[in-house]
Design a protein around this nucleic acid. Structure first.
Length: 240
DNA sequence: GCCCAGGAGCATA
DNA sequence: TATGCTCATGGG
């Protein structure tokens, strides 16, 4: 299944998603109360806005965004996402602030190690770190690294997540047949091959896959009859 | 009560 | 390289 066809189909069905949400801008024109900004991509980010995205990317690991937003609101009131605060805060204090995101002991440690990395880079934070540097940080894996590169630095990198795997495994009916399931790097390579190297396309594509995974391609009780991709999905074909 | 959510680290084989 | 386990809250 061609990723660009999927992208165009989902964009047509759902429209621009307004990622990555920025709570700090929730009173700006074009921004929703929750910080979404559909169709607005290219405004520069302040250091604290960039670090809000980095913080959110870590807190949302295996966690719903509603839980993360609650933590981000608390952090915004306490430190406005200044990384100096995350470094200096006590573990127990920080863990309490991000409690609603779950895994709060692990994530408190992840936030501190990440804050330390970016504080040491200092002025170099205007340019993106390498993917390898990000992966070397304790608490940052492939998806979080790519989310930081794409959404905090506008680098042309595709983000793959559990939804992407589920959707493309189903579209191609992988796993139940002779083909193996998609891996992170395998699916990212496919996306990079098939999509135009455009930051706005990559931005929307990942967000659209998340929306699609929530609305129709759910883990169970999937809603195939109303799915905008059902005419080209081998999972539907095999189960009808 | 169970399952899932915008994953990653670590031990084991 | 590839599984399996752990981390943890909050909504459906």
């Amino acid at each position: 299944m061609n990723s660009y066809n999927v992208y165009r189909n989902l964009l047509s069905a759902y429209g621009p998603q307004g990622w990555w949400p920025l709570l700090q801008r929730n009173s700006w024109p074009g921004y929703s109360q929750e910080g979404y900004h559909p169709g607005v991509y290219s405004l520069g980010l302040t250091p604290n806005e960039r670090f809000e995205i980095i913080t959110g990317a870590i807190l949302t690991q295996n966690t719903s965004w509603a839980n993360v937003r609650s933590s981000l609101t608390t952090l915004l009131m306490n430190c406005s996402f200044g990384p100096e605060y995350l470094r200096s805060a006590g573990h127990t204090e920080l863990a309490a602030l991000i409690r609603s995101s779950g895994y709060y002991n692990q994530k408190a440690k992840k936030l501190k190690t990440t804050a330390e990395f970016f504080l040491q880079r200092g002025a170099a934070n205007d340019t993106p770190p390498s993917r390898k540097e990000l992966l070397a940080i304790w608490g940052i894996g492939p998806e979080t690294a790519d989310s930081i590169l794409l959404y905090a630095y506008h680098a042309p990198v595709c983000v793959v997540d559990a939804y992407s795997m589920r959707i493309f495994n189903r579209l191609e009916y992988r796993g139940s047949a002779e083909e193996g399931l998609w891996t992170y790097m395998g699916l990212q390579g496919k996306f990079h091959d098939e999509l135009p190297a455009d930051v706005e396309v990559f931005n929307e594509f990942h967000a659209l896959l998340v929306e699609h995974g929530k609305r129709y391609c759910t883990s169970r009780n999937q809603k195939c009859s109303k799915c905008p991709l059902n005419s080209e999905c081998r999972f539907v074909e095999q189960n009808s």
